[in-house]
């Protein structure tokens, strides 16, 4: 499900089936030298989360990305997010990011870190394959959580 009014209606009717929340965490870098890389990794993250959403539309809710800049205190951000997201009625929360800093931060839910792959110069077919491969990397993490119940 996407974070849209229409999908939200479906979600509210089928609340017992859609038990997983996907939260993209997006680092926005502002120094001219890093902007290109930052843009590329945000493109990658958005493509990937959109693909995950189409594959698991009936079980996952994709949140709008949470963007932060370089000097954001991630520990504090993690605490705020954990607190606020715990109110939402989701059993499983997954944070998807390309920023490796999140791997060492404690947050309620699973952090899935994926190295960013520059997609901008690829032809659509290759891009699709790469995105699918990346999902295959993350898939065991989802399945593991889902099978725990």
């Amino acid at each position: 499900m996407n974070w849209t009014a229409q999908d939200m209606d479906t979600y509210l009717q089928q609340i017992e089936y859609i038990d997983t929340l996907i939260v993209p965490l997006l680092k926005v870098e502002t120094t001219p030298g890093d902007m290109k890389r930052s843009a590329s990794s945000s493109e990658f993250l958005m493509h990937l989360t959109m693909f995950i959403e189409t594959q698991f539309k009936g079980r996952m809710m994709l949140m709008p990305p949470f963007a932060y800049t370089t000097s954001t205190d991630l520990t504090e951000m993690a605490a705020t997010l954990s607190r606020d997201l715990s109110v939402a009625p989701f059993k499983h929360v997954f944070f998807l990011t390309t920023d490796s800093a999140w791997t060492s931060i404690k947050v309620d839910g699973e952090v899935i870190w994926l190295p960013s792959i520059p997609l901008e110069n690829m032809d659509p077919q290759l891009r699709k394959t790469i995105i699918e491969d990346q999902l295959r990397q993350a898939l065991p993490r989802f399945m593991e959580k889902w099978s725990e119940q």
């Binding site: 089936y17 698991f56 539309k57 009936g58």
Partner: peptide, 8 residues
């Protein structure tokens, strides 16, 4: 597209 909730 799954007829339940639209997964693949």
């Amino acid at each position: 597209v799954c007829k339940h909730l639209g997964c693949t």
